[in-house]
Design a binder for these strands. Structure first.
Lengths: 230, 230
DNA sequence: TTGTCGGCCGATCGCCGACAA
DNA sequence: TTGTCGGCGATCGGCCGACAA
């Protein structure tokens, strides 16, 4: 999965430690998130375990497009003082910050889908900022100004949208191609869509699904993955 | 799964030995059907193994509705002469035949779907025999004669069909409800449908899917089960 | 600036009898 | 008896500008 699109989908509230950073692993918290079916009372498991990040893989669920990360943690040697952990992490963070500045952070835009976006007439209201900074530049001399926008999702699949600037007052809309996208991705009002302009000008599209209401809605397509985003 | 519907779906070319019957188990044939990934050359496996049927379970694939049976086989004692096997089987068959006569064999009807049944206009041409012996009796005094037919599939799900007798010349048709059934079950021309009239007059409906052509058509919904019916 | 609504037009669905095999 | 076809009416999808928040 493209790292920049992955980060945009995860959102700014989510940070991933870089490889080599030192972190704390909380076995009990992991067990609780995994469903609570694990009983750690028998085994003597420490409440927290200093680890080093050995590897990070950016992943996306094939069904739901939801992004997540797999990371391999190696426990630090018992003799090593815990004070080193915080120091190593801070150093790693500084290194990561340097990386971010190096590879210019791409422009991205996220919008929560309204009822009209998800249900009515099969169109999508494009906020002006998104249309002007993410999408390719429109030729406003045409009447009406129209173009096709091609965007790749996290799986590399390309989607085609008709982007038109019309109405009174004028506004940007996605029409043809949008309802197909909504149906294929099973999007509902409240879900978010992420548009990102890659370094080469290529448009990417990602999803951020809403935490669906409670109720035992045992729907078929639902992913079984844990949704830990906030 | 209802045993009578199961038998109707499996077809008359397929027989299932009753519990207690003695049968031969062919390990090599089993391995070949399972995909050939099993290597029996290392272990010393006999070509055939006399067994007794310990249990039989009538099953249906939740995705494809295709029926199959799970049976537990217990190897006969080594000392037991093989001649007994045939004798025991014959006796069991006689017992089974007696059972069949006892519980009157229900009326059932199978039809292979034509192009018109599967594609055009969403209707199904009901052969007269099926309409007169399987479906509830129609009131021919009405103009046109119409009724709703409710049929349960192998999973116990009830489907509703509009059954009408119309046209010149007159013929039986399923209209409203049929295309929904075709879409939900992903039926194509060449697949077969089985209608069965239960002892209580309730109509049941089952499927028998065609052995789809070759080609690496890696379609999504396809069941991975082996199709060994003929 | 942009979310929602009603209008409206075209595509599709699906019920129909006319044939013919 | 029943498979296929063309017709056609109802429904639906989806593009549109008019509003108003």
């Amino acid at each position: 999965v493209d790292a920049q699109l992955w980060l945009a989908c995860a959102g700014s509230m989510c940070t991933v430690p870089p490889v080599g950073a030192a972190v704390y692993y909380f076995p009990q918290g992991h067990a609780e998130q995994a469903g609570g079916a694990v009983d750690l009372s028998a085994a003597r498991v420490p409440p927290l375990l200093p680890c080093r990040v050995a590897a990070v893989r950016f992943m996306a669920d094939p069904q739901s497009d939801e992004v997540y990360a797999k990371m391999r943690l190696v426990p630090l040697r018992p003799g090593e003082p815990v004070a080193d952990v915080g120091e190593a992490a801070a150093e790693a963070m500084r290194a990561a910050a340097g990386d971010e500045q190096q590879q210019a952070k791409p422009a991205s835009f996220a919008k929560t889908l309204t009822q009209s976006d998800a249900n009515n007439g099969g169109g999508f209201s494009v906020p002006r900022f998104c249309a002007e900074t993410i999408f390719p530049e429109l030729d406003y001399r045409a009447e009406p100004p129209v173009q096709n926008v091609f965007a790749r999702d996290v799986h590399g699949v390309e989607w085609k949208f008709r982007h038109i600037y019309r109405g009174t007052p004028r506004r940007h809309l996605l029409t043809t191609g949008w309802s197909n996208f909504v149906n294929q991705k099973k999007l509902l009002a409240g879900d978010s869509i992420v548009f990102l302009r890659g370094g080469d000008g290529q448009v990417h599209v990602g999803l951020r699904r809403a935490k669906r209401g409670y109720g035992p809605g045992g729907d078929d397509g639902g992913s079984s993955s844990l949704s830990g985003w906030d």
